[in-house]
Design a protein around this nucleic acid. Structure first.
Lengths: 247, 247
DNA sequence: CAAACTAAGTGTATATTATACACTTAGTTG
DNA sequence: CAACTAAGTGTATAATATACACTTAGTTTG
């Protein structure tokens, strides 16, 4: 292995390639969760603190050497929250040199980065899940995990507010085009539940009849021979999605 | 400045942060060009070679320490091709560990990367310009620059074929929504020229009357008091865009 | 200078899609 | 059995998208 002084190493790179340097690269995951109360986002405390909650952030960590970006996002999310098997979509990469400036826990930050002098460029992913199917558990080294309503997101570490806002916009755009509601409802669900999902994600009210009219045109929905049970009103017809595959 | 052996440096990082490493981060630019012949893409030879053309690639280079990603894309494109002032849109980041494997010029590759052991993660941008307004000139250290028709793109270095295909798909999607045809036509242009532009980018034929009907609804187009000159048929009315701003 | 050529320019009818809107029905609860 | 709740259903109207062909203005050619 080459053996040179590290300051020489830096000099060498800076002479041959000017100011080029190796940044840290991370992935961050914006996981939206859906339940009866509405649309929420998964946030973590960067590490355990006492009684008051530490600064919150999106779950994220550095990319490892031999994994691709999609794999990295899956792994990081699983390590931090034990969530697995969800569909994560890459949507944008954030690389402002000072995006690290809003981290209050400087000790945590020094530990997070390989090289304290390096900046961190982050590749951002989003996903949306049904909360009751995906109950996160904090990793031992991490702090608390919370589901925060999307209209009450506090000041986050790094530029994570910007990342979150971008993700929500993109989620809504995608949602109007193709349904990415794979995991958002019980296996068997009613059309009203599906409509409420759309209303919550898009943040609008929809007309029941028009909503159902559009559904009829789209494929992918299968009526079952079953009815809803345990409700104090006329039970609704149950449906399921035609099975689809994800990597 | 810290002064330690570089192999120790690598060991240190690998013990404190497991397999984490600092990849190289680059930007790549997919610049589409439009002229009477159709839609083309800007490719460069990685460095000058003799009579036969070396392997082609999208223009790209490593990100510098104190620039954000958008700035980096602008700078790199300018350094390699002297193209400046175009609107570059980030669309996806590519980070497969082996995306470097299709580079035939290994010597060039060693020189390109800071650290030969590191992988290269690249943030990809696209743009579209009117070719006659933007005539690229190769940098002294680079090889030839060519405009290649989008349906005749050869085997490119890295995973640049994949990046190119993704860019073309995204360009077409964007183009149908909002017009990003800021720079694609002469300052004064006819509606037929505008229609041909759309047909070339989207790869379809459009109906003249319906095309114009839709145009009327959209703002941003201003009829001039002038007519086309120097054509061997009925001269067309000239139009211009309402001025718009880019960063 | 007339005929032939070229692309410009223009409107209507039809089909598709989006929206607005209110009552009846089936089951549950008290 | 009366009251309650959400399920379920259709039609009329508006907006948008598509299909389609002839006349016009200027240029070139014989």
């Amino acid at each position: 292995m080459k053996s040179i002084f590290i300051d020489e190493f830096f000099d060498m790179t800076s002479t041959t390639t000017s100011l080029k340097t190796n940044p840290n690269v991370s992935v961050d995951c914006v996981v939206f969760g859906f339940d009866v109360e509405g649309l929420k986002v998964l946030l973590i405390e960067q590490r355990p603190v006492g009684d008051t909650l530490g600064q919150l952030a999106l779950p994220g960590d550095l990319v490892l050497q031999n994994e691709n970006l999609d794999q990295s996002a899956k792994r990081v999310l699983k390590e931090l929250t034990h969530l697995d098997g969800l569909y994560l979509k890459q949507f944008q990469t954030f690389g402002d040199p000072d995006r690290v400036s809003n981290v209050k826990d400087q000790e945590w930050l020094r530990n997070f980065r390989d090289d304290p002098a390096a900046r961190v460029i982050t590749v951002a992913y989003y996903s949306i899940v049904k909360m009751e199917n995906y109950q996160p558990e904090a990793a031992s080294f991490a702090g608390k995990i919370i589901w925060q309503p999307v209209d009450q997101v506090p000041d986050l570490a790094f530029d994570h507010n910007k990342i979150f806002d971008t993700a929500l916009t993109r989620l809504r755009e995608e949602f109007e085009l193709k349904n990415i509601a794979f995991e958002l409802l019980p296996e068997k669900f009613t059309l009203s539940q599906l409509q409420r999902l759309h209303e919550m994600v898009l943040g609008v009210d929809l007309d029941k009849r028009n909503f159902r009219k559009k559904l009829k045109m789209k494929t992918g929905l299968v009526a079952l021979d079953e009815k809803q049970t345990g409700v104090d009103h006329k039970p609704a017809q149950l449906f399921k999605y035609k099975p689809r595959k994800h990597a």
